[in-house]
Design a protein around this nucleic acid. Sequence first.
DNA 1: TATCTGACGATAG
DNA 2: CCTATCGCCAGAT
Length: 95
Amino acid sequence: MGTGASDFERAVAAVIDATGPGEVVTFGEVATEAGYPGRARAVGAFLAHHGDGHPWWRVVTASGRLVPGGEDEHGRRLRDEGVEVRDGHVRRPRR
DNA sequence: TATCTGACGATAG
DNA sequence: CCTATCGCCAGAT
């Protein structure tokens, strides 16, 4: 076994799992931090299918936009950690 | 193998 | 703030 998850998924999961409460990161940031710059979409795909078990709610788009279709739950989770959420979007983590 | 889709990113209008 | 377009990659069909 060793072939289950790819290095990409493993690295991405590690970065997301390394985030702390109240901390917000973007998909592109996670990809870059994981060592795979430009794979922001792959990060989203990973969370969409394997996000369970990881603090996926701490990951938002580069514009601070929350998960489309799950803004209510996403925003609720972030607010629960002390993150300022405004109308389905969080204060831009990147300026 | 080709094509489509999508929890992305950036730029342009 | 919005849509449109292009570039990017992984998984599904």
